[in-house]
Write a protein that binds this DNA or RNA. Sequence first.
RNA 1: GGGGCAUUCGUCUAGCGGCUUAGGACACCUCCCUCUCAAGGAGGAGAUCGCGGGUUCGAAUCCCGCAUGCCCUACCA
Length: 491
Amino acid sequence: MSQPFRVRMAPSPTGDLHVGSARTALFNFLIARRSGGSFVLRIEDTDAERSDMEKEAGIYDGLRWLGLQWDEGPDVGGPYGPYRQSERHEIHHEAVAALMADGHAYRDYTTAEERAAEREGQRERGEPQRYSGLGRRLTNAQIDERKAAGVVPAVRYRSEPDAVTFDDLVLGSITVGPDDIDDFVIARGDGSALYNMAVVVDDHHMQISHVIRGKDHVSNTFRQVLLYEALDWAPPRFGHLPLVVNERRQKFSKRDGAQWLGDYRAQGYLPEVLCNFLIFLGWAPVDEREIFSLDELVQEFSLQRVNRADAVFDTQRLDHFNGVWIRGLDIDDLAARALPYAAADGLTIGPADHDYFAAALALEQERLSHLNKTAELMDFFFDQDLNPDMRQAKFTKHDPSETAQALVRVSELIAQAESYDDATLEQQMRELAGQLGWKAGDLFMPVRVAVTGRRATPPLFATMEVLGRDRCQVRIQRAVKNLAALTGGSI
RNA sequence: GGGGCAUUCGUCUAGCGGCUUAGGACACCUCCCUCUCAAGGAGGAGAUCGCGGGUUCGAAUCCCGCAUGCCCUACCA
């Protein structure tokens, strides 16, 4: 990639970024950065009636969260604005007028009923359903009549019976036959430009050099190419990415659960992970590495290595990436990221508890699969009233009263330990197990349950060190009490 | 109905005419490590490269046909 590419991302304001759009944005971002070019954000809000500002913000949030900063856009401006399609009506209109002036487009006074009837007839006869140019054949008298009757004409491109070909950066050369493009509408009755028209005009005026988008746009591309020719503008290069599909190999939809970036954020995925995962949906590096930061992707990415086949969004693989990235995070970084999730789940961690939280989190780091599991994994570190259910200890080898006696010994040991740390604790507990004639593991499990209230925890002694002597002592006392209740008497 | 595109383990992918008994990763299974859970390590199972024809000394790789799938087929974007 020698020339700086000017690429763009043109989402509709939906309030959040769709994962498919996020992926398209990623590819565009990478191409721009890699070539030293520009990444343009254009909001395609022409269809929207209501206030889009909030929905627009959702797009910004998603992009920023992923780390895909744009160089030009509605909020940051740029030399080719405005960057909101709804503010470009006049520019579109000029082009539509030009097309009409030189005969490439015409006003169509047919009615919706007439067009529907034509389609219906074609369908019944088993013919391809295409607009035959009804409006071109209306006589002046008919047109006057309709004008008088209040028919508001749409503007249609006047198609010629030629094949259209373009060379796609990903798909290669693509051709559509002469009969397969009809007189499509480029502007509504009210004069506003339709998608294909608006896109061509905007991309041209914004000097977009490469249009990289989803494969679902290839059929639009033929029309757009025609418009570029009619307008006598040099078209950009096109590159169509394979689609991200669900398990059933269809386009992602609401039925497929999480389809918005915000969903993934809420589920505790790291933005780095989304980038890392998404880029592998349709692209692979030259070697067999799998973990890439955005910066590394900028170095490695190449359009030539983009696939043509659609890719299934595999959540298990996403989860795996999340784990790898979480484990790779520096503990302070992880703590800063996990804190909001923990707080959202009701874990109150004041500034004074920060170090304690980080120390505990360090123990859970390799067990944390998603940031939103933080509280679930760590609440026992913060539960002042933890009241361990000792039945979890199972008592397969030693019954509750025996276990209680052992815990009393543990409590004494804790009280006397001159140094309350991982190594000392382990050494002394192993000694105690020996004195008791227990297998070490058989002693550790009830202690674990007593001190954490659960069976699955980080390594026991490191956990006890972080919890601290007092917390452990209190919890073991309670455990002994609970054990006594289980046996129905005292010990 | 029409058009376009695609088709390598269940999934993401490597492969670009011989180096391939088709490589890696996720998930799965076994074992090791081990105080639990993870993480990690070592193995295993899993793809006649959609099917059928060609081209070639030789094809997952090139060509043709078929099948299947997806996308598009609006005065939506």
